[in-house]
Design a protein around this nucleic acid. Structure first.
Length: 751
DNA sequence: AAAGCGTTTATTTTT
DNA sequence: TAAACGCTTT
C-alpha cells in the first residue's frame, strides 16, 4: 500500500495523527471519530511507508476483544506485513515478559495466574490468619483495596505509610499475609502481572534496556482507562526512543472505580512537554441531533478538557423522551417503540440496544421481552470460564502445572467426591502447619513419609484416601511432562471420571458440553511440546474472561449495561432509568467527581447511537425492595428542548390509569419545570397478534420462537389468561413462565 | 451432602 | 424484592 493510499481516506487531524511518528503524541479522540482507524493506519504507515520493522512496534489494548478487532483490521489494511508486532492486552504483554525473563526478574516462571475467585479465597484465609473475623471485614472490600494499592505500585510497607483509619490498618495487615500466600502458592494475581513487570524492569537495567531497544514505537488504546502501573510500564518502555502515542477520550472515562486514573491523560502533557496533541472531533457515527444531545450532556462537566464534536451527517430524528409510570410500563413502552421500529422502519431487532445503569434493571425488561415474545440477548450471565465445571477442570490443570498451587488443589481435592471431607481436610492442614508448608506440598509429602509419623495427624481412613490422591497427583504431574495438552486433558477427565460425575449433576448434559468446548480450546495447543502447551493453554484461559465467540445469537435486541456498551455502536439506542438515583446512581449523588463520571456514562450511552436515541424514565420504581419516586435525571435537563421530538406543552392525557391520574394532578412535576410533560401513548393493551392459541396441558411438547422446544410443566388460569410453565430443552434457558396469550407457543403434535 | 432457616445486603467489571 | 450467605438440622 502506498503512502497516498494510506492517507487519502483520512481527515486532516487523522492524517496528522498518522504521520506524526516522532516523539510523544496524545490523541484525544471523540466517540465515533475513527480512533481504531487512526491506530491501524498509523501502524501500517510505520511499516509500509517508513519501513519500521513490526518487531519494533507495540500496540496495547485493554480487552482481548479490542486486541482482536485491531488485529483483524490491521490485517485487512496491511496484510501479513505486520504480523510479528506485539499486539495485546497489558496483562498478556506482561505475562510474556515475566515468563521469558522471570528468572532474571526474580520470579519463578512456572507461576499460575489467580483470578478473582482464587484471590478472594486467599484474602478470606488471610483475614482469618490475621486473627480477624471475616464477618466484620468484607473480603471483597479488602481485596479491592489491595488491588487499588497494587494499581498504584504500593507494597504493604508503602501502604502502611499512608494509613488513615482503622480499615486501612486492616488492609495493610491482610495485604501482607495475602502477598506471602501468593508467593507460597507460586501464583500471581492480575495486578501482580503488571506490578511485578514494572518493578522487575525497574530493578534490572539490562533487561529494561533490551525492551526499550525493541519497542521503538508504542501505541496505547483507551488511554483514559489506564491505571498508574500501566502508565508507568509504557513510560518506562518508551523512555529511550520516546515514540509513544496514546489515544483516548477523557469524556469516556467510566472506570475510575477500577483504578483507571484520568490524571494519566492530564499528566501526559507534563511528562512529555514536547507532546503533539491532536483532537479528533469529527464524528462519523451519529446524526447531528444525537451529537448535539451528547455534547450538551458532557458540556455540563466542569473538570474537563474541552472538545467539541461535530458531524457532516444528516440532522436525523430527534431524541425521544419516554415517560412511564413504573418500570413495568417503561419496559412495555420500550417494547412498543421497538415493535413500531421493526414493523415500519426496517430496523432489525439486532440493531437495537437497551442500555441500563445497573444489572437489576434488566429484570423488568426481560420479563416484558419474554411476555411479548421479543427476542433479546442479555450480555451478563455467567461467563464461560466462571462455570463450575470449567473451573474444576482448570483447577486440576493448574494444580498439575504448578505443584505449589494449594488454592487449586483444595478446589478439586474432593471433586468428584472421594471421601475427603472437612475432617480429613483439617487433618491435612494440621499436618501442613506442623511441617511449615502449604497444603499442596504437605499432600505431596505423604507417600514418602513414615506411616507411624503420619498417624499422629491422620486417621487410618484419611491417610489411605489422601495417599491415593497424592499418588494420583504425582502421576498426572509426571504425565504432564510426557504427553501433549489434549491427551493430558483426556486422560485426566477419564482418570477422575468427570463425565459421569458432571452428567449426574443438574443441567449435567449442558455442563458436559461445556467441558467438551474447553477440550476444543485445549486442542488448539496440541502442536506444542507437553509442558509448553499446558502453560500456553492455561495462560490463554486465565487472561480471557469469556469465550465471547458464543455471543451472536441471531437478530435479537441487545440488553446491556452502559459500561458494557462502551466501544459498541447501534443504530437505535434506548437508555432506561433516566432518573435521579438511577442515572446518576444514588451512590454518586453527593460526590462531584463521581457525578461527573455518571454524566460521562450518560454521554457514552447517547454516543452509541447512530440514528435514534430514546431516553426513558419511570415515575416510580422498585429499588432494593421499596418503591421510590425519583425526579427525572438531571441529564435530561442538560439537553436543549429543541432536540426533543415533541412540543414542550402539557397535553391532557387520554387514559384514566393511575398513571394518567398522576399526570393530571401534576403533583411532583411542579418542581421540574424544565422537564416537558407529554401526552402518553397508552401501552399496547392488546396482546401482540397470536399465532393461534393452543390448548395446552402438562406433558405437551411445545415450541417457542426463541427458547426452542420444551415440555409443559403446568398450566393454570391467571385472570383472563393462562400461565404456562415450560421446561425448555435448550442450553441455558430451562424453565420459563409464560402468559399463554403473549408467548407464541406452538404445540408439537403426538405428545 | 442437602435442605431449611434467618440474616444481610444490594453500582459499574476486565484482566 | 430477592439473592446470597452462613448456620443448623436431617
Amino acid at each position: 500500500m502506498t503512502k497516498t493510499d494510506l492517507l487519502s481516506n483520512l481527515n486532516p487531524p487523522q492524517k496528522k495523527a498518522v504521520e506524526t511518528v516522532d516523539g510523544p503524541v496524545l490523541i484525544l479522540a471523540g466517540p465515533g471519530s475513527g480512533k481504531t482507524r487512526v491506530i491501524t493506519h498509523r501502524i501500517a504507515y510505520l511499516v509500509g511507508v517508513l519501513g519500521v520493522r513490526p518487531h519494533h512496534i507495540m500496540a496495547v489494548t485493554f480487552t482481548n476483544k479490542a486486541a482482536r478487532e485491531m488485529s483483524s483490521r490491521l490485517e485487512a489494511l496491511a496484510g501479513s506485513a505486520v504480523k510479528d508486532l506485539t499486539l495485546g492486552t497489558f496483562h498478556a504483554i506482561c505475562v510474556r515478559i515475566l515468563r521469558r525473563e522471570g528468572k532474571e526478574l526474580g520470579i519463578n516462571p512456572g507461576f499460575t495466574i489467580y483470578d478473582g475467585d482464587d484471590q478472594l479465597k486467599l484474602v478470606k484465609a488471610a483475614i482469618k490468619q490475621a486473627g480477624l473475623d471475616p464477618k466484620n471485614y468484607t473480603p471483597g472490600a479488602i481485596l479491592s483495596a489491595i488491588s487499588a494499592a497494587k494499581s498504584e505500585l504500593l507494597t504493604p510497607e508503602e501502604l502502611s505509610q499512608r494509613v488513615t483509619g482503622h480499615f486501612d490498618e486492616v488492609v495493610v495487615k491482610v495485604y501482607e499475609i495475602y502477598r506471602s500466600s501468593l508467593a507460597r502458592n507460586n501464583a500471581l494475581d492480575f495486578d501482580d502481572l503488571l506490578m511485578k513487570t514494572v518493578k522487575g524492569l525497574a530493578a534490572n537495567e539490562a533487561i529494561l534496556k533490551r525492551y526499550q531497544e525493541k519497542y521503538r514505537h508504542i501505541l496505547v488504546d483507551e488511554f483514559q482507562d489506564t491505571n498508574l502501573v500501566q502508565y508507568e510500564l509504557v513510560k518506562m518502555l518508551s523512555a529511550k526512543y520516546r515514540n509513544i502515542c496514546v489515544v483516548g477520550d477523557p469524556d469516556q472515562s467510566i472506570y475510575s472505580w477500577r483504578s483507571a486514573d484520568i490524571r494519566n491523560i492530564l499528566n501526559f502533557e507534563k511528562d512529555f512537554p514536547d507532546v503533539t496533541t491532536i483532537y479528533l472531533e469529527q464524528n462519523y457515527r451519529s446524526t447531528r441531533n444525537i451529537i448535539g444531545a451528547a455534547q450538551a450532556v458532557i458540556d455540563s462537566n466542569k473538570a474537563r478538557k474541552k472538545k467539541t464534536l461535530w458531524t457532516e451527517n444528516e440532522e436525523g430524528a430527534r431524541v425521544k423522551l419516554i415517560e412511564a409510570y413504573d418500570q413495568q410500563e417503561e419496559a412495555r413502552l420500550v417494547i412498543n417503540e421497538i415493535s413500531k421500529l421493526t414493523d415500519s422502519h426496517a430496523v432489525k431487532a439486532g440493531d437495537i440496544a437497551v442500555l441500563f445503569r445497573t444489572n437489576a434493571q434488566s429484570r423488568a425488561l426481560e420479563e416484558a421481552f419474554v411476555r411479548y415474545g421479543i427476542p433479546y440477548r442479555l450480555a451478563a450471565g455467567t461467563k464461560f470460564y466462571e462455570r463450575r465445571e470449567i473451573r474444576d477442570i482448570l483447577a486440576y490443570l493448574k494444580m498439575i502445572f504448578n505443584p505449589a498451587d494449594s488454592v487449586s488443589l483444595l478446589r478439586v481435592i474432593n471433586v468428584p467426591a472421594r471421601g475427603i471431607g472437612r475432617q480429613t481436610l483439617e487433618e491435612l492442614m494440621h499436618f501442613a502447619v506442623s511441617r511449615g508448608v502449604k497444603e499442596a506440598e504437605a499432600l505431596s509429602m505423604i507417600p514418602s513419609a513414615e506411616e507411624a509419623e503420619l498417624l499422629e495427624y491422620f486417621s487410618l481412613r484419611s491417610l489411605k484416601i489422601l495417599k491415593a490422591f497424592a499418588e494420583f497427583v504425582i502421576e498426572v504431574q509426571k504425565m504432564a511432562g510426557e504427553v501433549r495438552t489434549l491427551e493430558l486433558f483426556d486422560r485426566l477427565i477419564s482418570r477422575i471420571e468427570y463425565k459421569n460425575y458432571i452428567i449426574s449433576q443438574p443441567e449435567g448434559e449442558d455442563r458436559w458440553q461445556n467441558v467438551l468446548e474447553l477440550r476444543s480450546v485445549a486442542q488448539q495447543y496440541n502442536e506444542l511440546a507437553p509442558e509448553e502447551g499446558l502453560a500456553a493453554f492455561l495462560e490463554s484461559v486465565s487472561l480471557v474472561a469469556d469465550t465471547d465467540s458464543l455471543g451472536e445469537v441471531a437478530d435479537s435486541v441487545n440488553l446491556i449495561t452502559l459500561h458494557q456498551a462502551k466501544g459498541l455502536e447501534f443504530p437505535v439506542v434506548f437508555i432506561v432509568g433516566m432518573e435521579e438515583n438511577v442515572l446518576p446512581h444514588y451512590r454518586s449523588i453527593d460526590d462531584p467527581a463521581q457525578m461527573e463520571e455518571e454524566r460521562r456514562l450518560c454521554y457514552v450511552g447517547i454516543t452509541r447511537a447512530k440514528t435514534r436515541v430514546y431516553l426513558c424514565r419511570a415515575y416510580r420504581r422498585m429499588l432494593m425492595g421499596n418503591t421510590q419516586v425519583n425526579d427525572p435525571s438531571r441529564f435530561i435537563a442538560d439537553i436543549p428542548q429543541e432536540l426533543f421530538d415533541e412540543k414542550q406543552e402539557v397535553k391532557q392525557p387520554r387514559t384514566t390509569s393511575a398513571f394518567s391520574n398522576y399526570f393530571r394532578s401534576g403533583n411532583s412535576f411542579g418542581s421540574e419545570a424544565s422537564i416537558p410533560i407529554k401526552e402518553k401513548r397508552p401501552a399496547r393493551e392488546e396482546p401482540l397478534p397470536l399465532m393461534e392459541m393452543p390448548l395446552l396441558k402438562a406433558g405437551n411438547r411445545v415450541r417457542h420462537a426463541q427458547f426452542g422446544e420444551g415440555i409443559v410443566v403446568s398450566v393454570k388460569p391467571s385472570g383472563t389468561d393462562q400461565e404456562v410453565v415450560v421446561a425448555f430443552d435448550g442450553n441455558d434457558v430451562q424453565i420459563k413462565r409464560l402468559m399463554l396469550s403473549f408467548a407464541r407457543l406452538e404445540k408439537i403434535q403426538n405428545s
